[in-house]
């Protein structure tokens, strides 16, 4: 029950997906397979609920132990406040009717959208922009031209960076960069994509056939 049923479910779900891709003639089999795809999206929706619950549980546990307690409280307050505003006002720029606000506040500026636009967006953008300093300093410390491969990597990176600055056209770096991006870069990406696709397909097949079972947990 604990081992066999999940393996059977995986097999049926996997085969249904493959069938829905190849059989699209409106028969019962193809229609049923395509509906199973929809079910997967719905099941994933419940996983979001589980994920939210899990983050609350872990944060509460840490707060109880006194680990960064004020910050954990900030996290929980932000989480619950945003979720409440989202459930109450919807996710669009203008407030829409949801089952929680009984159709009030039509076409007003949505506080959920306000939070996203004025807090989450600047936080995320600035957080990612910080990486430019760390990526540059890490590259400065780590990159040493000890081999031909390292030299090629470094030279390409410098040309690509030079090719995107305003004086690139004056020094001709934009043309070299364009050539690198459409010729050797495409060759490399194509080789990587093909190799990765073969890996993904073979791993997926192993999962469907029940050879790979690590996703079931340790005591499977």
């Amino acid at each position: 029950m604990r081992r066999t049923v999940p393996l059977v479910i995986t097999f049926i779900a996997g085969v249904a997906m493959i069938v829905s891709f190849f059989v699209n003639d409106g028969t019962v089999l193809s229609v049923a397979s395509s509906k199973v795809k929809e079910w997967g999206i719905i099941i994933a929706g419940f996983a979001v609920v589980l994920g939210t619950g899990n983050i609350v549980r872990v944060t509460l546990h840490k707060a109880k132990r006194g680990e960064d307690r004020p910050f954990k409280i900030v996290l929980l307050v932000c989480l619950f406040a945003t979720m409440f505003l989202g459930l109450f006002f919807g996710i669009d720029k203008e407030i829409r009717s949801t089952w929680m606000n009984f159709g009030m506040f039509e076409r007003e500026y949505n506080p959920f959208y306000w939070i996203y636009f004025n807090i989450q967006l600047p936080l995320g953008a600035t957080m990612f922009s910080l990486l430019v300093f760390y990526i540059t300093s890490a590259a400065y410390r780590a990159f040493r031209v000890r081999s031909i491969e390292a030299g090629i990597l470094l030279t390409t990176a410098v040309i690509v960076m030079l090719g995107q600055i305003p004086i690139s056209s004056a020094i001709g770096a934009d043309k070299v960069m364009a050539w690198i991006m459409v010729v050797p870069n495409v060759a490399a990406k194509r080789a990587i994509f093909m190799g990765a696709a073969m890996g993904i397909a073979s791993m997926s097949l192993k999962i469907i056939l029940g050879i790979e079972r690590s996703y079931l947990g340790g005591d499977s």
Partner: peptide
């Protein structure tokens, strides 16, 4: 919970085979 995880993994794996072969190969 393994049943639903198995369904999600199975759906993802089944979808990955034709899609990755078509798109990336």
């Amino acid at each position: 919970s393994r049943w639903s995880i198995a369904a999600t993994i199975g759906l993802g794996s089944g979808l990955a085979i034709p899609v990755t072969i078509q798109a990336n190969i």
